[in-house]
C-alpha cells in the first residue's frame, strides 16, 4: 500500500523537476500559441504548487516530529531516504518563497535576454536542489542535491555569457565550489568506510553503539571526516555571502552616486 503522507515529501521535488524538464517543450508551445509569457507563468505556478504542498506537508508532520520516505521502496542502509521535520519544511518554504520572488522580479528584469526557457529551467532545478538538501536523509543524497544546486548556480551566474563579468565570476565560482564539494565527498566516503552506510540516522545509531568499543585512534579519523564535510560545504556558502555583500555594496555606491 502506498503511504500518501510519506509520498507528500516527494511532491515538491517532483513538481519542480517536471516543470524544469518540460520547459523546452513550453518554449515550442509558446511559439505556436503566440503567447510569450507561458514559461514565466509555468515557473510561478509550479513554485506556488510547491508552496501549497509544503503547507500540507507541514500539517501532516506528527507530534513526535518527523516524516520519512524511501525512494522506490528501498529502505536504509541501501535506499535513498528523505527525512522531513519542521525545520526542513521551514527551510524549504524560505527557498520556495525566495524562488517565487526571483521568478516575479525576473518577469521584467530578464525580458531583454534570450534563452529564457533555459533560465527558468535552471531556476527551478536550483530550487529543487536546495529543497533536496533540506530534505535529504543520507549524506550521499545530500551531496547529489548539493551538486544539482551548484551546477544550476554556476550556469545562472554565467547566464549572460556575452558579458566578461559573468564568465569570469562563473569560472572562479565553479573552481572554488567544486573543490569544496570534492572535499565534502571525500569526507562522506570516509564516513561510509567507517560505518558501511551513508544514512544519517543509521550512522548516528551505529556510532552510539560503537562508542564504547572505539579505539583511541579511530576518534580523530571520525573528527577528520566530519571536518572535511563541514569545510567542503563551507566555500559555496561563503561564495553566496560574498555575492550578497558585493551586490549590497554596489547598490549602496549606486545610490550614493545618484544622490550626490
Amino acid at each position: 500500500m502506498v503511504d500518501i503522507t510519506s509520498q507528500l515529501i516527494m511532491y515538491p521535488i517532483i513538481v519542480l523537476l517536471t516543470s524544469a524538464a518540460i520547459m523546452p517543450l513550453v518554449k515550442i508551445l509558446e511559439d505556436h500559441l503566440k503567447f510569450k509569457r507561458l514559461k514565466e507563468f509555468l515557473t510561478m505556478l509550479s513554485i506556488a504548487i510547491c508552496l501549497l504542498s509544503l503547507s500540507i506537508l507541514h500539517r501532516e508532520i506528527p507530534a513526535d516530529g518527523y516524516l520519512e520516505a524511501s525512494l522506490l521502496g528501498f529502505n536504509p542502509p541501501f535506499g535513498t531516504q528523505f527525512y522531513v521535520d519542521e525545520f526542513s519544511v521551514y527551510m524549504a518554504v524560505i527557498f520556495c518563497g525566495l524562488g517565487l520572488l526571483v521568478a516575479i522580479f525576473s518577469y521584467r528584469y530578464m525580458e531583454v535576454d534570450t534563452g529564457l526557457d533555459k533560465y527558468y529551467g535552471l531556476l527551478l532545478t536550483l530550487i529543487t536542489g536546495m529543497i533536496g538538501v533540506a530534505f535529504a536523509g543520507d549524506l550521499f543524497n545530500l551531496y547529489v542535491f548539493w551538486e544539482l544546486m551548484c551546477i544550476s548556480s554556476y550556469s545562472l551566474v554565467s547566464f549572460r555569457k556575452y558579458r566578461w563579468e559573468a564568465v569570469e565570476a562563473g569560472f572562479k565560482y565553479l573552481v572554488m565550489s567544486t573543490i569544496g564539494s570534492i572535499v565534502a565527498l571525500y569526507g562522506i566516503s570516509l564516513i561510509y568506510g567507517s560505518f558501511k552506510t551513508v544514512n544519517m540516522r543509521e550512522v548516528a545509531v551505529r556510532l552510539s553503539l560503537a562508542q564504547a568499543k572505539l579505539s583511541p585512534s579511530a576518534v580523530p579519523s571520525l573528527y577528520f571526516a566530519a571536518g572535511l564535510i563541514i569545510c567542503g560545504f563551507a566555500p559555496t556558502r561563503y561564495d553566496y555571502y560574498d555575492r550578497v555583500f558585493l551586490t549590497s555594496r554596489k547598490l549602496r555606491y549606486g545610490l550614493l552616486n545618484r544622490l550626490s
Binding site: 550521499f140 551546477i151 550556469s155 554565467s158 565553479l174 552506510t197
Partner: peptide, 27 residues
C-alpha cells in the same frame, strides 16, 4: 552501494567538466 555511489559521482563529475569547459570557451 559503493558501486552505485561511484557511478553517480562519475556522472556528476562529467556534468561539472562540461560546464567548466563551456566556461573556458567563453573565457
Amino acid at each position: 552501494l559503493a558501486q552505485s555511489m561511484a557511478v553517480i559521482s562519475m556522472s556528476i563529475g562529467a556534468c561539472i567538466a562540461a560546464v567548466a569547459l563551456a566556461l573556458v570557451v567563453d573565457v
